[in-house]
Design a protein around this nucleic acid. Structure first.
Lengths: 157, 157
DNA sequence: TTTTTGGTTCTCAAAGAAAAGAACCAATAA
DNA sequence: TTATTGGTTCTTTTCTTTGAGAACCAAAAA
């Protein structure tokens, strides 16, 4: 039953740093470590048990974390004929979608701020002007980020 | 001692929505509401007690939240001659700095990912290529976001 | 039919985050 | 000198998050 993935101390360190980085963006510790492991591991597709044993997690923690990551679309799993196990992989492809989501957050915030602006007293022109400027910046970003993305696509060839 | 700020239900709603939005970016509930209040309130500079009473917070919660926001540079306070009270205001100016911080996060992440890439096995060329691409995208963004900012500045006149 | 595998779900304990309330304190006012 | 103001700090409580462990369960294997 030795399902553990063998990792160098450098690899373990990177997993932790990736973990912390994910925690910063709001993902809980266990799922964060799993994402890290699935980024660093030489083997791309890992079974429930090898994840569990490599990271010293309980079954419940592993199960919940994997399901959360599946729901978030951050990982996926593959299966093999004649093997009931699922093998989980980092869905690295999803970074484009993530970027998009991050950009959409800007839209949401600027929408709220516009509503705030509409409802503000006219007695505070300077503040309102500042607010207007922030909104304008966000709108501008939103308009031009897609173009920037296309530019990057082109720059690749 | 009626220090409460008078707010319409629309204004209260906006404060809550701004609050939730701030919570999403990692700021705790009380400070989040205070930021919302200081964004919506017709009066720009509010005293400790009017914040406390308007948001129904305890003294300790108010004190801690205000100090956290001061440390984060999200608010500032002004004083008036012959008045010991401090009047707190939203430091709306700081959105540029915040944007910069957000951009810097991209740099940090791409730095970790590069290190991961250097330490990956060569046996997984497709995965590695994807990773390389994600890194390239982040680097590109980082290079061009400052230009985009300048463009926006110009577009204002 | 019974056992094993590959998990899931439930219950509980531990730890941490938030906030309340009271005690406290320095500076000003009386 | 004493009282008040404008907070800060400490202690306690409450709520939430996280994860462990055990019970559970469906599908497949024996």
């Amino acid at each position: 039953m030795m399902n553990k993935v063998e990792l160098s101390s450098k690899q373990r360190e990177l997993i932790e740093r990736l973990g912390v980085s994910h925690e910063k963006s709001g993902i809980p510790p266990a799922p964060s470590r799993i994402l890290g492991l699935l980024m660093v591991s030489p083997e791309l597709a890992l079974s429930f048990d090898s994840i569990r044993e490599t990271l010293n997690l309980s079954k419940s923690a592993t199960s919940n974390a994997l399901n959360m990551l599946l729901t978030m679309n951050r990982i996926e799993y593959i299966t093999q004929p004649g093997d009931r196990k699922r093998y989980f992989k980092n869905r690295l492809v999803s970074w484009r979608e993530e970027a998009k989501t991050a950009f959409e957050r800007i839209t949401q915030v600027s929408a709220i701020l516009e509503e705030v602006l509409e409802n503000r007293t006219k007695e505070t022109p300077e503040f309102n002007e500042n607010l207007r400027e922030a909104i304008s910046f966000m709108r501008f970003m939103n308009q031009h980020l897609p173009e920037l993305y296309l530019e990057w696509e082109k720059s690749k060839d």
